[in-house]
Design a protein around this nucleic acid. Structure first.
Lengths: 188, 188
DNA sequence: GTCCGCATGTAAGGCGTTACATGATTAA
DNA sequence: TTAATCATGTAACGCCTTACATGCGGAC
């Protein structure tokens, strides 16, 4: 459900993984099942159709019959077109809308962006990420203050939980900027 | 996509709101559009079908033609059956699975639970919520430590972001417990 | 020689999204 | 009277979910 590029969050996750190194569908499922990757479902009914879609879009190419055995096994690798789309998707500016509605997409973008778009763009991403988050958190705080009296205690606490999440993310981003500036070499 | 009761997160949100006071579909949309409520979509294509479903399930009852004008306007109120289902759904214990896959559902449950299931159950909810979260965060930290060397810096940072989110939620829950214990009166 | 893990898929169903459609009421 | 807001919906589409299905390879 992502913007202009038509890259859903799941497709982005898969394409990002394959951009790092060629993978089979099963490999992707394993990553989703065994790592805390975006807490995606590893169900075959999600992965294989998604792989087919991004292959039909020309972003990856599947190769059969590699390796020793002639077992059915399709290894996907990213195409030049795929890299282009990925780069375009990862370069999109962070909007207020993104931080409100597409946090998971943003974190996914961040996780893959450094090798694809370069350190400088990554840092710019974090800057706007942090400031959009901060602005939104401030706004929510104001809203909360204005309704604090009339809210049931648990509703208020639930809302504070959300706000603290945004504030935490803001701080995380600022720390990340410092870390990445200190360590300027780029994974490539 | 929620467990046994067949109450999706959106249905839960709507049912929870209606449990507080009778609402029209448009009212629900306004709440979603103007408050930070779970960042749901306020699109009519989501709300009205969901309302219809929970009405068909017998959890709410719609009444037409109230108020001054004879404008088409359906006010929904929760039924005894709806309260029963809500209570059952809100009383479910917090599982490890929930904190990994259904955080938004958990926060929604929390936001509505106090008046429906009582302060004591709410506190128990927060207790298990906190300990499940803490356990999972610890586990992720171990995992992160074990792969720290071989991870690209941004992948590591993305993962730390996730872990910090869990830790933040743990602390939030502990603070919430203290607050709710201090202020024992119950919204009813 | 049987069971488990690898590896790939399909089918039905549910539900949210975007976009479109319709009509009543109120404010300018 | 025109526009905005109130209020309710439908249709097409996409995509995820659960469940089922299939066959190879290695281990015991």
């Amino acid at each position: 459900m992502a913007q202009e590029t038509g890259l859903s969050t799941l497709s982005l996750a898969i394409l990002g993984l394959i951009s790092q190194r060629p993978l089979t569908g099963y490999d992707v499922r394993k990553v989703f099942a065994t790592t805390p990757m975006g807490h995606f479902s590893s169900s075959p009914g999600a992965i294989y159709p998604a792989l087919r879609r991004i292959e039909e879009a020309g972003w990856v190419r599947g190769k059969t019959g590699e390796g020793k055995t002639r077992r059915e096994r399709v290894v996907y690798e990213i195409t030049a077109r795929g890299i282009r789309v990925l780069k375009q998707h990862l370069s999109r500016p962070v909007t207020r809308d993104d931080v409100i509605w597409h946090m998971d997409d943003l974190m996914m973008r961040f996780a893959f962006m450094d090798p694809i778009v370069g350190r400088e763009t990554t840092l710019r991403f974090l800057q706007t990420f942090a400031s959009e988050l901060e602005a939104y958190a401030t706004e929510l705080r104001h809203y909360l203050d204005s309704v604090r009296q009339i809210m049931p205690p648990c509703g208020r606490l639930a809302m504070e939980n959300g706000i603290q999440g945004y504030e935490m993310n803001t701080q995380w981003a600022r720390r990340a900027i410092e870390e990445l500036q200190g360590n300027s070499q780029q994974a490539d």
